[in-house]
Write a protein that binds this DNA or RNA. Structure first.
Lengths: 186, 186, 186, 186
DNA sequence: AATGAATGAGGCTTCATTCAT
DNA sequence: TATGAATGAAGCCTCATTCAT
């Protein structure tokens, strides 16, 4: 199980740095300190490796944000926790976050089972519904809201990265940007 | 100049459908009804073709939105025109819009001269500044605002595409989503 | 000894269906319900497995035809028994017969010790000699006769298989084809 | 068209010497004095190369025997010409003949269009029919006769090769073996 | 004897690019 | 400009075999 992890780790870094097609499986193996064939012992194809990596990372993120959101009591705080901790996680795991972004904008998304995607969105969608029913935010299609929030996070993340903000202004910007978002939704 | 256009057109479609690395230059040539080598008479390399395509498309979009924005008199209307006509153009030119998205999330962005990028953003940034100085929107880094607007457009575009909305609800959603954005920014 | 048999059985089927090079040792192991490495405990190499399989099968066929031929008293009946029971065996053991054919037309034949081959042919050659000396068949090189008989059997076998004959016409054809052969040789 | 021929020629030799799976496409290219990729410029896949080679060779053989058979007037002479010149051709083109044998006993046969096979047999089948209707040979399924003749040729060919016969005894054996065959069929 | 993870050489094929016509 | 045959590096993957458990 050790080598498998090494492979996933190496793959993550290389995929982000050079793209899916830009990184050869042989490079991944080499970087992981593993024989060429070992990669294919653990993952039938390069595609399978990519998908597996995506699912693993997505689950990590969801576990984290879910945990944080559940600590909150009122609805706005839950939404905020969801938003903010996603950003924190993203900034703490830039490779992982970039990779997820790469996937969702590539043809690979279509290889992820639809149920998997539904399952991933489920908690967030429920939270949005709760906020809508509680009168906290406007009545709009939940999918639409979910989309706006996700994209908003992505935009802020990108901005912070590009500007290379320090810890304090970073935290401030994140707080501020959530308030912008919340203002938009209420 | 005819064949050159055929090549660009074929390339656009294939790049969007199969990605940059997924489409061979030979396929592009074939699709364009052109000999294999002809492609390389017009574009020194595959990369040059990609960049050229991007710049052409970007210019088309900017010309269009600029023209629409200039028809408006007051600031909010200008911003709105910018926002809305970008979306309309995107929905009318899905291949082109997708392609631009693909580029901006790929390593190819780094091959686009920085001045080019600055030039592209210039008009939008000036408009944002104008709106900020006129007290219409909050004082925040212009880059940040620009980022938020751009990403917002992308999010709405994606949502519309996924939901396959009809003409009327589409128009309504676009209007509505601009109001959301504006609310956020003011 | 159980797993060894499973391996040989699986190998036989796969070799016939997909050829020697077309079937991976791992597939054989899998099909035999055995671990990958187990195969190499029983057979040092893939080649050894192939040769072993061939020798086993050849011995089975020879034992069977020998036994049948010995039940006969006069020479023609012996030759006939040899001919007919080879065909019956072949039709009862199509995988085994195919496999033998595959081997004899592949470079693997050269890996079978010459003495082994001599030994295998011995009984048949002696029978042919007996028939020749008894004046039943023409005086021609025994090897040549042996060759003609063998190939004749193969031809009839192939024809029966291709035409998917029923039991009765099959038996008739076999009898008839022996008479043709005999007519040729006398 | 030159390189294409070189490739076919090199492929023929190597396939016969080392089998289909035993010869790498890179070896073929190298042997043909051609770049690796050139092979795939002329043949989409290794399989296509194999099939193409088979069809080319088969056509050569058929052209030759057809031509010889048509020179004969009476039926037996036609059959004999067919038989004997096939053997001569085989002995003059051992690589080609071996290759054809290899194909017909491999899974590749199934990739040859059935009509193609029918077309190839057509002339021979018609000749057999003619001989049968003329009362020269026994009334048996034409396919069966065709099969027996073919296999007979193959047996004699193999025998001659193994024994490395000189020109004169070779010719004698061929004549003699035809008489054996004819005796069987009448 | 049995397992199955690990190996790495080698196979087939793709593809951007060149060049003689 | 246009063509398309030719190139050869590089990619993905397979597979016989080994070895620690």
């Amino acid at each position: 199980m050790d080598k498998r992890k090494d492979i996933l780790q190496a793959a993550l870094r290389l995929f982000v740095e050079q793209g899916f097609h830009g990184t050869a499986t042989s490079k991944i193996a080499q970087e992981a300190g593993v024989a060429n064939g070992t990669l294919f012992h653990h993952f039938k194809t390069k595609d399978e490796l990519i998908i597996r990596l995506y699912l693993d990372i997505k689950k990590q993120l969801l576990n984290f944000t879910e945990e944080q959101a559940q600590k909150q009591k009122n609805t706005k705080e839950k939404v905020k926790a969801h938003y903010i901790y996603t950003l924190y996680w993203a900034l703490d795991h830039p490779l992982e976050f970039h990779f997820m972004q790469q996937i969702s904008l590539s043809p690979f998304v279509n290889q992820i089972p639809l149920e998997e995607i539904q399952e991933q969105k489920k908690a967030a969608i429920e939270l949005i519904q709760e906020a809508m029913e509680g009168g906290y935010i406007q009545k709009l299609p939940t999918d639409f809201i979910h989309n706006l929030i996700g994209i908003h996070i992505f935009g802020v993340y990108q901005y912070i990265l590009k500007k290379e903000l320090e810890e304090t202004p970073k935290k401030e910007l994140i707080e501020q940007s959530f308030e912008l978002l919340w203002k938009m939704l209420t």
